[in-house]
Write a protein that binds this DNA or RNA. Structure first.
Length: 488
DNA sequence: ATGTGC
């Protein structure tokens, strides 16, 4: 039932440009800066008022810089919206677990190959069966890789370096992970016994929800030069891994939320929403969370690395021979849920800020010192997974990204229908058949999970990507179409 | 997202 007098987002927002909308400081009491929503007019119709309220709430937090931002795929999240980007001054700002999310370093990686769609199509069904067998999926799934407590600590601290030293992936993979897959500043002593217990058996597991491993092919190249630099061309097969830090990251978030909830009171931070629990960036409580968050981030990079390794083995078992190098190189790996201490130019001055990206991708421009050498002139690759059955995109960051959005882009399609609603409205078997008729094969533990992730429950990934492209944050390089997907 | 819900 909709009330005619209900305020719409159009009544609140002030249009700045085609794809930029401002939430004025007066919208909610206590806003320190305006909100800034990067969205097209048509996507704005799908933006919920509550999401806008969350953007405004974040603007009230101490030390926030420039704007409380939301990407075109923004939707309601825990405290901060998913698709939210907020930078807080290193000295006067705060750190908040809600600005990162429960799935710390949920992220995406893309692996290229020398195989063509025609090579893979005839063997696709067997390939997917074997991938589904090799890579555990589902909520409570456990891995065949068992690590000791000491190894887990090593993973928390050294991330992907641990993986490569232990035979998962190769040295060349490291440079193609954001932060080299080993963010500095980890302190395992800030990770509870419970989080370790949950994390130990889950290295190399996909999890559930929107997490997946997808076999794809490139159906369109937008930028030949950039595509070539990443080793991508039309008709080529790729695979994409989307997952995070599983139970470990979830427990770390839960543990520290509790600490930061009381810290918010201790430091007299008035919160419009208790889910925004936070503490001054340099406080013991905030730093402890940050050190534990880094452990979860490094864990997630190892998780994706091990999954990639097993997937490479399966591809090799099906396609490798003495005359063919499969070229299963890691194109790039990006984090979607993370907070980082970065330097940004604010009012002409270089400033250190804790950038919180929750359901948002880092997008550093050409020439940025944190980029791998071979992408330095190109700009950071940005990987945007589509929802099940819809295209994914590869973009590369452009020079204005730092100025526009603290070097950040969107992260995906963005949910429009709740899981509960989707389960009620849609049948997994129908969705599977519909996808199958379009040549897309799905392997999942339960049909209901397919319903929850159906294409209809997400915004169009193409529209979301176009906003980021048109704004000059990251430009389109390639479009990837799904062939088959394994899910929890 | 999650050994799934004050």
């Amino acid at each position: 039932m909709s009330d005619e007098n209900e305020t719409s987002v159009f009544d609140v927002l002030k249009r700045i440009s085609d794809n930029e909308w401002e939430v004025p400081v007066g919208f909610k009491p206590g806003m320190n800066v305006p909100g800034r929503i990067f969205v097209s007019e048509s996507l704005l119709n799908m933006l919920e008022m509550e999401t806008l309220g969350q953007v405004a709430n974040v603007a009230t937090l101490p030390g926030i810089q420039k704007y409380s931002m939301a990407m075109p795929d923004a939707h309601l999240g825990y405290g901060f919206s998913i698709g939210g980007v907020a930078a807080f001054d290193k000295e006067t700002g705060i750190i908040s677990p809600g600005g990162v999310g429960f799935d710390i370093n949920c992220g995406v990686r893309l692996i290229r190959s020398n195989l063509s769609e025609q090579d893979v199509r005839p063997k696709l069904s067997e390939l997917l069966d074997d991938l589904f067998k090799a890579i555990p999926t589902g909520v409570g799934s456990k891995s065949r890789l068992r690590v000791t407590d000491a190894e887990l600590e090593d993973i928390f601290v050294h991330g992907v370096q641990w993986a490569v030293e232990n035979g998962y992936g190769v040295e060349a993979d490291i440079a193609h992970c954001e932060s080299k897959g080993q963010m500095p500043g980890a302190d395992p002593s800030k990770v509870s016994a419970k989080a370790r217990k949950r994390g130990r058996p889950q290295i190399g597991t996909l999890g559930s929800g929107n997490h997946f491993l997808e076999v794809q092919y490139i159906d369109k190249i937008y930028d030949e030069e950039a595509a070539a630099a990443m080793g991508l061309k039309e008709g080529q097969v790729t695979f994409m891994v989307h997952c995070g830090s599983r139970g470990a990251g979830h427990q770390i978030c839960t543990d520290h939320l509790q600490i930061l909830t009381s810290a918010s009171k201790k430091y007299n931070i008035s919160l419009p929403d208790r889910q925004l629990a936070c503490a001054p960036a340099q406080s013991q409580e905030a730093q402890d969370y940050f050190k534990a968050m880094v452990c979860a981030a490094n864990y997630a990079w190892v998780n994706r690395h091990v999954i990639m390794h097993w997937a490479r083995e399966i591809f090799e078992s099906h396609f490798a021979n003495d005359f063919c190098d499969l070229g299963l190189d890691l194109v790039y790996d990006v984090a979607h849920n993370i907070a980082k201490l970065e330097e940004h130019k604010i009012d002409g001055k270089n400033t250190e800020v804790y950038v919180h990206r929750k359901g948002a991708t880092r997008a550093f421009p050409p020439g940025h010192p944190d980029l791998p050498e071979d992408y330095l002139d190109l700009g950071q690759p940005v990987l945007i997974p589509g929802s099940m059955g819809t295209p994914s995109y590869v973009l590369c960051s452009t020079k204005d990204s730092m100025e526009i959005s603290f070097g950040s882009a969107c992260h995906g399609a963005g949910r429009v229908m709740s899981r509960k609603h989707a389960k009620k409205e849609l049948r997994g078997e129908d969705i599977r058949d519909e996808l199958s008729s379009r040549g897309i094969q799905v392997r999942a533990t339960q049909p209901s999970l397919i319903a929850e992730e159906a294409p209809a429950v997400y915004k169009s990934s193409s529209e979301v990507v176009d906003v980021v492209h048109d704004l000059g944050i990251a430009r389109k390089v390639a479009r990837l179409l799904p062939m088959g997907v394994i899910k929890g």
